[in-house]
Structures are given as structure tokens and as C-alpha cells.
Design a binder for these strands. Structure first.
Lengths: 87, 87
DNA sequence: AATATTTATAGCACATGTGCTATAAATATT
DNA sequence: AATATTTATAGCACATGTGCTATAAATATT
């Protein structure tokens, strides 16, 4: 182990918020009749990424979210029409 | 230079979307009377990060956006109530 | 105008998002 | 039940988001 005391910064990872977004995305995708693969293709992102987002394994960037919004033809206003849980 | 042909993947960076979000955030923050420093403190993120977001230098993660939403006491529905420009 | 406050930049180290490939697990179809 | 399709995981390499510190630039206050 390194004796040098490295500072462990703690970054935000908003478990609850990420879970809520995952559920919202999955719901909309299914309602619109997309498979993950189709959505990934339309959005220009990878299938693995779509799966990771829907299972709340990662904390996507806005660009990724914007791509999903456009691919589903769902406005951001609608995509984010869910309650953000308290932290 | 390395002769090995490494693959240059191109990640999404949604310039227009990021700019639109930056403008929306700045507008709301000012309307609510926060300084960047106050907002950063309330959201538990760094001042430099708030400045980078408002000047569209970075592509923030959802967790960061959620923290801003809670700090300003503005719902996601409201925070994302803007037109996502075409890509 | 001088001073104080606020916002914008820069550079570093570290954490982690992303694409890719492969494969397993789960679900749907025949 | 067997087969096909869809979703979930894993591991790697690389790109980049984030916090921190410092400082400059811009704006507001006195």
C-alpha cells in the first residue's frame, strides 16, 4: 500500500435519482415499442450503454440523455416528467 | 508516434444541447438570486464545475444535474422545460 | 476611480462514462 | 421443449467529468 496519503474525493453518485431515471427510460422505451438495440441504434449509442442505463449501473452524461430523447422523439420536458427522489 | 493503429472512437458531445442546458441553468439560477458559489455550495459540487457547466465547457452527468435541481428547489420537469435543439 | 465580489480559466490527479467484444441469462416465439 | 431474440454482465482501453487550487477577467459596490 502506498504510504502517501492520497486524498479520496467523493464524487456524487445519486443512486435514487439514477434509479428513477432508469425506470422512466425503460417505461418510455417499452411504451414506444423499441428494443434496447433499436433505441441504441437510433440514438447512436451502444447497446451495452442502454442496458447499463436501464439497470442503473452508470450515471450517464447529458449528451447521452439528449441522444435518447431525440431517438425516442420524446421531449426532455416529458422524459424528465417524474419525481426526483430525495437524496 | 505509435505505429499501432489505435481506434479513435467518437463519443457524443452534444454542443447545441449542452449550450441550451447551460443557458437554462444560468437563467434559473439568476432568477432565484443565487451566485454560482452559493449554488455550488447548496448542491455540494464545486464552484469550478458550476462555472464550467454554465459556460458549456463540459457535459455533466445526471447526478450533477440532479444535485442542481434539488439545490435550486426546481423540479426536473421545470429544469428541462426548454427546447432541445436539433443536432 | 478604487475596492470587493463574482465569474471564467487553467492544470493537475483521480474517478468514471463510453464503445467494443464476447457471453450468459432471461424472455419470447415457434 | 427447442430455438430465437432480447436483455444483462464483464473486462478492456480510452475519453472525459469532477474536485481542488490558483489566478485572471469581468462586474458590482462604495
Amino acid at each position: 500500500m502506498n504510504t502517501k496519503a492520497r486524498h479520496k474525493r467523493n464524487l456524487i453518485y445519486d443512486e435514487k435519482g439514477i434509479l428513477a431515471f432508469a425506470a422512466r427510460l425503460k417505461k418510455l422505451r417499452k411504451e414506444l415499442g423499441f428494443t434496447q438495440s433499436q433505441l441504441a441504434f437510433e440514438a447512436g449509442i451502444s447497446l451495452s450503454q442502454v442496458a447499463r442505463i436501464e439497470t442503473a449501473r452508470i450515471n450517464p452524461t447529458l449528451s447521452t440523455v439528449f441522444a435518447l430523447s431525440r431517438a425516442m422523439n420524446v421531449s426532455l420536458h416529458e422524459l424528465f416528467n417524474f419525481e426526483l427522489p430525495d437524496n
